[in-house]
């Protein structure tokens, strides 16, 4: 009974890192989205248990994605984790105010990712 995690980031390297850290445990399926738009497109396609999103992305930003998820009764229950850089403390704060459950700061380790996901999906 594995859970599906959507990883949203415009950097393919970041996506594959997050994905490989999580796939290793075998408990999760990963869906990748290279932009906020892609995330919006993929979201209705299947059951997503958790969204991990970058904040600064070209089309819609991560905060807008989180707000979108919160607003829609179908998606409201999906928890979110944000990925930020150390410089963007303010954006991280806003993300948490919007209801993100955890944040991860780049560069991150496998343990940090798995730890955050584990706490949220417990």
């Amino acid at each position: 009974m594995s859970r599906t995690i959507m990883v949203v980031d415009d950097s393919s390297t970041t996506r594959s890192l997050v994905a490989s850290h999580l796939l290793e445990s075998g408990d999760y399926d990963i869906v990748e989205a290279a932009s906020g738009f892609e995330a919006l497109k993929v979201l209705p396609a299947g059951k997503v248990d958790l969204i991990i999103t970058d904040i600064n992305m070209p089309d819609i930003n991560g905060l807008e994605l989180i707000s979108f998820v919160r607003e829609n009764p179908i998606y409201r229950h999906i928890p979110t984790i944000i990925i930020t850089t150390e410089d963007s403390e303010e954006d991280r704060k806003r993300g948490m105010e919007l209801g993100a459950m955890e944040y991860i700061v780049k560069p991150f380790t496998a343990e940090e990712i798995r730890g955050a996901v584990g706490r949220v999906l417990k």
């Binding site: 906020g36 919006l40 209705p44 089309d59 819609i60 930003n61 807008e64 994605l65 707000s67 979108f68 607003e71 829609n72 009764p73 179908i74």
Partner: peptide
């Protein structure tokens, strides 16, 4: 400056 998406469960075919 900003592009905020929203959707409505009653009309999933529009955004």
């Amino acid at each position: 400056i900003s592009t905020l998406p929203s959707s409505d469960e009653s009309s999933p075919e529009t955004i």
